[in-house]
């Protein structure tokens, strides 16, 4: 049972405050970037920032950075499964008209 016994690291307030600052900064950034026309890139930038913010919350506010391998697997697995669902379903929608239209992407 001792294979992945966690030590329950106590995260310091300074760490929390730093993360808070970063999160607020990224929020402002994503807001202003949205008003700039980046074409297709807009989506990737917005999602990139959201993923970064989410990761910061998971890793530090939720202590996964300091946690056992098991919890890393649970977190990665859950998001991975969501990805699996998105990719395989989207795969259907993207390729649905390939045989009619002579276009490769969208």
């Amino acid at each position: 049972m001792s294979d992945d016994h966690s030590k329950h690291h106590i995260v310091q307030p300074t760490t929390y405050a730093t993360i808070l600052g970063a999160l607020l900064l990224f929020t402002v950034l994503t807001y202003y970037v949205a008003f700039i026309d980046l074409g297709v890139l807009s989506n990737f930038v917005a999602m990139g920032i959201a993923v970064t913010k989410g990761s910061l919350v998971v890793l530090f506010f939720m202590h996964i950075f300091y946690s056992t391998r098991l919890l890393w697997v649970v977190v990665a697995g859950s998001f991975g499964w969501l990805g699996l669902m998105l990719v395989l379903t989207l795969g259907d929608y993207i390729t649905r008209h390939w045989d009619i239209q002579h276009r490769i992407f969208f």
């Binding site: 008003f35 026309d37 917005a46 989410g54």
Partner: peptide
């Protein structure tokens, strides 16, 4: 705490996905 942070993360994704699409057309 974990639960609360999770709800926060959901919003972190909802905000750009719902509020920030195509803002540059009107901004």
């Amino acid at each position: 705490g974990l639960y609360w942070h999770f709800v926060d993360i959901v919003w972190i994704f909802l905000f750009p996905l719902l509020y920030l699409i195509g803002r540059h057309h009107h901004g």
